[in-house]
Design a binder for these strands. Structure first.
Lengths: 103, 103
DNA sequence: CTGCAATATATCCATTATGGATATATCCTG
DNA sequence: CAGGATATATCCATAATGGATATATTGCAG
């Protein structure tokens, strides 16, 4: 799973959001560290919908602009949790390293 | 930082290793989950050396085959630790989510 | 009123990272 | 003697990414 995919699915765990909303959410959640480019966002959402990790929830028209809300599927939830576990193991490779040489 | 970079630097935290050794180490550390392709390995090592995140430690000739050992630099150690912290925050987005909706 | 930023989606294009495959060379095992 | 492990190196196709541009509306500052 790529990082963009991970952050998109992660943002959707709180409830349905539209593409641009995911970009803003991700930027906030990361304190401005993670910025997903719009090209990446919409292409990734298309791919994720094909893979059934997200689904179109509903569409809204606000001020003449269409908002397409996506929700995460059960499959998507499983996938992002599995990825979180995988990343945690990767983190532990570096942080779980307290004077191992001294044994 | 890409994943290949992260795992390579991580593998070098225990001491100098040669390219093929890093591939084997990473495979072991991850229980066979993470497999870095040889093309990725040597190209990444070249790039990391340019960026001063790793340095050539020494070369050895074993059975007529050259082994080029790389060690992680202080800069590389800082970088991989920073990345681990960044990944930990990413993990927390998913795992640090215990019935938030119930508030 | 005009230009710019924010909102919202969409697509093009160049760059980068990746992995599969191939090449070369040695050693060991079946 | 063939095949796998060891060890480095490179080619090439694919995939992911981001910058840029396009379109359209709203609101705000100059």
């Amino acid at each position: 799973m790529t990082e963009a995919t991970y952050f998109i699915l992660s943002a959707l765990l709180d409830g349905p959001l539209h593409g641009y909303g995911i970009i803003l959410r991700t930027r906030e959640q990361s304190g401005g560290q993670v910025r997903i480019a719009v090209a990446t966002m919409y292409r990734t959402l298309d791919r994720l919908e094909e893979e059934s990790l997200v689904a179109t929830d509903h569409e809204q028209v606000v001020d003449g602009r269409v908002r397409r809300y996506y929700r995460i599927t059960d499959e998507g939830t499983d996938a992002v949790r599995a990825e979180a576990a995988r990343l945690q193991r990767a983190v532990n490779l570096v942080t779980g390293r307290v004077a191992v040489t001294g044994a």
